[in-house]
Amino acid sequence: MSVLTLYNSLNTFLILGALLFGMGVYGIVTRKTFIGMLIAAELLLAGASVNFMAFNRFTAPDPVVGQIFTLFIMAIAAAEAAIGLSIVIAVYYHYKSINAEDIVQLKG
């Protein structure tokens, strides 16, 4: 197994997907603003998509299914980004802040 034939192995892509997922988790946990969290959520979805596409290429009998599912994930991610960002803008008009620690009206 040479470094130059890494693209022919399933493990490469699974580890890359896990790395992207880990970066997304790190971003969601540590970011202070809502937009930063949304960016990290996009990383999470990218990691999941890479996993789907890897299994689709290497193990699935019908390589069309994984591609269609990845397209579905992309559409959901686009919808999530649009709704999430419009909520961020509405919150900013209301509180003049996008910091997650400032929006504490419902805190008991």
Partner: peptide
Amino acid sequence: GFGTAALIAGGFSVLAVRTEWPVI
């Protein structure tokens, strides 16, 4: 946060490498 992320990514990687995936 880094610990959690490293745990998740490392766990998934180990799981992926150790499993025998069937090829159809």
